[in-house]
Nucleic acid binder design. Structure first.
Lengths: 169, 169
DNA sequence: CATGAAATTTAGCGGAGGCTAAATTTTTTA
DNA sequence: TAAAAAATTTAGCCTCCGCTAAATTTCATG
């Protein structure tokens, strides 16, 4: 990661990381979804995948071909999609990471767009950050009273001040 | 945000959001950095900006032109870059959001690559999530004992188990 | 004020990951 | 089993945001 104290753009970090990062965010989305379906159905097909991810079949084909080249899925033209051992391991990691973020957001009181929030954040965090957020989740689980206190704190804060709210969306 | 319970790819969310979201992640990076320099130096130039963000001047020009079209910077060919009122307001928001994320990561014990972690995450969170993470930061500030307890919990967890660590980077 | 240096812009390319349209393969059904 | 339908792939285009190379403008210096 070159210099740690220097700024880069999002694209800049992508370019820096793409050497030692196996998958792009997009590939992660596909692999995670394939893993989900493997768990429930035992297999995956292009048109199921494309419906689940709200993309066109042509887009799904392109990505699955990339995953195949990387040895993450077992796949031949017009065929059924399975995960390789490597793909399963990676998919399991992705799904767990997803759950860690979702749990965290849920803990701090996010209810609206919980899924999309999670989907966007999960690609941005390092392994180390995931581990730490997971630790925080576990900490709250062990001390429900503390989580309860945070919720009260939140209540008060929201009740007390009509949030100034910077309108930048 | 269309259907809340449906999955999309990262790119899919981008495409969905680009209607009601003013800036791309890239533009946010540039605007945030211009804002930083306005605070310290009072102005910005293309080559300063490009050095600060580790991009080539040509890339900075392109983005600043986009920000000008959106009415966020006051800028003419070969000239000095200033922020408009709209740009200042938005930049202030971006810098605050950055600080909120950085503080949160720091709280949960992230020290390595803190800057890059922050830079990547900040673009992914909604206003609502930012407000809630800020609330969590404030909660910890009000209850340093709780943060201390989390740190001890973390210590123990790290000491106790040689983290299994899924090797997916 | 002319000339070289520095700063900036323009033009055009590349990769990621969408899309459509058209071609191809597989499956269904009569 | 042949024709229609459904699924999949290929080809080619678009946007974002990097890049390089070349053109242009501004600045500095004698």
């Amino acid at each position: 990661m070159s210099k740690n104290d220097e700024f880069y753009t999002v694209r800049g970090y992508q370019l820096l990381n793409q050497e030692h990062k196996l998958l792009t965010s997009g590939m992660e989305d596909y692999l995670e979804m394939i893993y989900r379906n493997m768990e429930t159905e035992g297999y995956m097909r292009i048109n199921i995948l494309s419906k689940l991810l709200n993309v066109k079949p042509a887009s799904a084909t392109k990505m699955v071909q990339k995953l195949a080249v990387l040895g993450l899925v077992d796949y031949h033209k017009y065929g059924i999609i399975f995960l390789t051992e490597k793909g399963k391991k990676y998919g399991k990691f992705l799904l767990e990471r997803h759950k860690v973020i979702e749990k965290f957001l849920s803990n701090i009181g996010i209810t609206e767009n919980l899924l999309s929030e999670t989907e966007l954040i999960e690609h941005s965090i390092s392994n180390n950050t995931m581990v730490n957020i997971d630790l925080l989740n576990k900490f709250f689980e062990k001390h429900p009273d503390i989580l309860e206190e945070y919720r009260k704190f939140k209540e008060l804060s929201e009740r007390g001040s009509i949030e100034a709210g910077i309108n930048c969306d």
